[in-house]
Design a protein around this nucleic acid. Structure first.
Length: 292
DNA sequence: GCACATGTTGGTAA
DNA sequence: GTTACCAACATGTG
């Protein structure tokens, strides 16, 4: 679920509270029937499966280190630690990073708990366990996967750079926006919302965009992402901010998950198709293909 | 039981 | 080489 606006919201929230803090200890959970048992991580014997990268270094590099910074690249979170290592966190579908009181109830699917020097905790929760926390040396961190494959930041991309990407490929626009090596951070929800505001059909071929269409798309990419960040992201199911609150931007969605509903521009019906292997919502009346 | 789900990757086919 | 499609990852929801 988390796309660029959600990850940005989490990073901004955490930056205010975890930078400068020392990581005192690590914990994980185990299930005994219905009971959640909290376990200390002291050796790699109970390191949760969501930990990756240079795993042998994880415990010694993390415990006792100080958090120097937290940043975002695409949908990845980079946490820089003192001592020369950094963590790459990817939330994938259902991952959550929550800063909370240590007295708050530890919920099911909490895989990693960082005990911080202010007495609070940073918890990684992930129902489906597709996400991960990987550790690498900070030097050359941007050469580590997946950071090495990421394209432009969509909020910063110049129109000339976008035009070049579009014309160099003959790919459906939905797939274009989802491809993280072109631009990194746009996922299924924002791809549909950007295409609708650009009045562009999701199956339109990238190399066929006119100059005017390219300019509109460029503007809408930034507009949608900026508004979504202002609303602290879209909560459909699992996403919460670093304080466990829901975002607001789902209320502003114009097409995502609105099959059969009237389009706010033309009152036509929004339809759902499959594109790029994903559910794709759009208004056929005001998002024409126009390919001649 | 069945279909489907917000992300990414890797294999295969065209 | 490029693009499209599907399965896989593990679990939950309707």
């Amino acid at each position: 679920m988390p796309e660029l606006p959600e990850v940005e919201t989490i990073v901004r929230g955490l930056a205010k509270v975890i930078v400068g803090q020392k990581i005192i200890s690590l914990k994980t959970t185990a299930l005994k029937g219905d009971k959640i048992i909290i376990e200390d991580i002291k050796t790699s014997s109970n390191l949760p499966s969501i930990v990756g990268g240079v795993k042998k270094k994880f415990i010694s590099a993390v415990i006792g280190s100080t958090i120097k910074g937290i940043n975002r690249r695409g949908k990845s979170i980079i946490i820089e630690l003192s001592g020369g290592h950094s963590l790459i966190v990817h939330l994938k579908m259902t991952g959550q990073l929550i800063y909370t009181d240590s007295s708050d109830k530890v919920i099911k699917h909490t895989h990693l708990i960082f005990n911080l020097s202010d007495g609070k905790e940073l918890r990684y929760v992930d129902v489906r366990r597709f996400g991960y926390i990987k550790i690498f040396p900070s030097e050359n961190i941007f050469l580590e996967h997946p950071l090495d494959t990421l394209g432009h930041e969509p909020i910063e991309i110049k129109i000339g750079e976008l035009r070049e990407l579009l014309s160099n490929h003959k790919i459906r626009m939905k797939s274009f926006l989802l491809n993280q090596s072109f631009m990194s951070g746009i996922g299924n929800i924002y791809a549909d919302e950007i295409l609708h505001r650009s009045h562009m059909h999701p199956l339109k071929i990238s190399s066929n965009l006119s100059g005017k269409e390219t300019a509109k798309l460029h503007k809408m990419i930034k507009e949608v992402l900026r508004e979504a960040i202002e609303h602290r992201g879209s909560t459909i199911r699992d996403y919460v901010t670093s304080t466990g609150e829901a975002g607001d931007f789902q209320k502003m969605h114009r097409v995502y998950n609105k099959e059969g509903k009237p389009c706010r521009c033309c009152q036509g019906k929004i339809i759902k198709i499959r594109a790029g292997g994903r559910s794709t919502f759009f208004c056929p009346a005001c998002q024409p293909i126009d390919d001649k």
